[in-house]
Design a protein around this nucleic acid. Sequence first.
DNA 1: ACCTCCAATGTCAGCGCTAACATCGCTAGT
DNA 2: ACTAGCGATGTTAGCGCTGACATTGGAGGT
Lengths: 347, 347
Amino acid sequence: MSDPSPPRKRRTAGRITLNDVARQVGVSALTVSRFFNHPERVSEELRHRIGEAVSALGYVPNLVAGSLASARSRIVGMVIPNISGPIFASTIQGFSDTLARHGHQLLLASSYFSPEQEESAVRAFLGWSPAALVVTSHFHSEGTEKLLAETDIPVVEIWDYQPERAPIQVGFLHYDAGVMAARHLLERGYRRIAFVQNSAAGDFSALDRRDGCAATLRDAGLELWSFAPSAGSAPFEAGREAMERLMQETHRPDAILFANDNLAAGGLLAAQRMGLRIPGDCAVMGFGDYAFAEMLLPSLSTIRPPSLGIGETAALRVLESLGVIATEAPVQRLNRLECQLVEREST
Amino acid sequence: MSDPSPPRKRRTAGRITLNDVARQVGVSALTVSRFFNHPERVSEELRHRIGEAVSALGYVPNLVAGSLASARSRIVGMVIPNISGPIFASTIQGFSDTLARHGHQLLLASSYFSPEQEESAVRAFLGWSPAALVVTSHFHSEGTEKLLAETDIPVVEIWDYQPERAPIQVGFLHYDAGVMAARHLLERGYRRIAFVQNSAAGDFSALDRRDGCAATLRDAGLELWSFAPSAGSAPFEAGREAMERLMQETHRPDAILFANDNLAAGGLLAAQRMGLRIPGDCAVMGFGDYAFAEMLLPSLSTIRPPSLGIGETAALRVLESLGVIATEAPVQRLNRLECQLVEREST
DNA sequence: ACCTCCAATGTCAGCGCTAACATCGCTAGT
DNA sequence: ACTAGCGATGTTAGCGCTGACATTGGAGGT
């Protein structure tokens, strides 16, 4: 046991490290580290020389090692129901871009509204010591709630807006969207207003919109006519069916508010095929402002949710919580964004 | 200098570590590590006891430390032009979902077609020692090329398909899409065919499609009529302008192939307003099969690129390269997927 | 001349985990 | 009985970086 065991062979190949750069410049590794993380604490001259050595050597900082040492990372995890749908894509885009502008990375997973998938994504993300975590809506599995409660990193819930909950929230009230739609239809002089939702989808937020609409009509002394097409059909077909059925009624509605733009598009098409004039015979309104809304004939009046804004605002709140960008006041916990009424030809 | 300096205080709070679990069970840390990474090398009994301790303590493995130690991670980086557009969203979705099914995470950034932004994303990603990297198309900055060439992790290029390049590629030939469109129009009996592209966008792939179309017409003894609306206008407006201008020609075309569905939708709308019958007076075809294509009136014939398939296939190739899933043969380097002709009413 | 103070830089000890190697106990072959 | 061989587990030494603290040297005050 006298002589020390011979040095083991290195495991990693010739990766260029901080030390290589430091040696080249003739400073300590820590100074090079500062060059990346606190450049203002390095003298101008060294800053210059280190910068040159870095690009000469093609050094790429090992963020994994840095995160381990500092117990911090510039990764932010986001779990969202789906990526490719018309709804969330721009939220992701806004979030990702805003993060990137401030040197943070996005770790993304989709849950398809499954609390289990959400939990497994959150668990995996937590292993990366992310700087923050963003989840969609306030409905989580018990396990997720526990994980989120125990962590001390900032957590942001998006899309939903539930004032009584603890974490930072960025979203809007679907109820308000319903009110907005109802007011618009009333202003235009419509009185016999129907609400069409696809009963198949467990879309609870649509119910909030319907309630907002119904309440507004009630204040005006009117009653909302609720209609759900037969379960199980695709939104487009369901919208068509709804339009056909409603138009056969003796006291048919003079305006239909569809739960989303897909339904509305189906309705619009059915109306065309039936030879109805829109909005003359019946006004049509949707929700979502999907890309095609302005391309329909007639173009579709709808409510545009603040998708992009939610992504951007969520990123800002995250960055503020992390102290990456300044806030005068403490980080705003509740962030209620507004939907936007998009008036087009169909109303 | 006689006595050793007193132990420094710990920097991290009471995070639960592998050692905590190991102590609780009465084994070494390494055995717990094996429990997570090579469960088959741990005896059944220990597997059981460790599993219980893990959930009792609520232990979440620190992937950062693990990656540093093993110089490997289960993160895959993807750089894509944009997230929210109609084109790439489902590629991301397919990629992310396939990765997730095999326990890998997606690190995502968008480049907006800017080689500089792409390079900075690639650089940041490389700092995370990702398991693999996916970039869009073969056009990169010099710096990116260098970074990709020097790394030894698998690199996959998607969307474009350039047989002579080195990395794994998953994509399709835009030229073929043009051929496919031309054949369809010829079969339908159209002879005076125009191609409309938005000159504003530096959309080189559209040129490939045009070339494929032109070649096919030439084989049939016909010539493609190329038209570019005035620069700088939005696709929708540009499509409208193209339709109006082309229809004023004395020998007007009997079919128009638009460079994408947005242009085509504008064209369709203009035709409606001009009182033209589609496809009677003029057939209209697009490219992309955006969500609205089937909701237009008439519904739009178009070419559907294999967006989802590209994402899924890219993920499979990545996982194969990593040895996560089996391949009999060596990983296929060139993966040419097919577009799909979507015949609807407009032709 | 002396001291204080601050900015610039360095030393040292880990962060939590895993690769490589060592060891232990047992089965099986001779 | 003896040992080769194997599966299960332990020991050691980092992975590349950064936090806390130490040190240095010069500006500025008295």
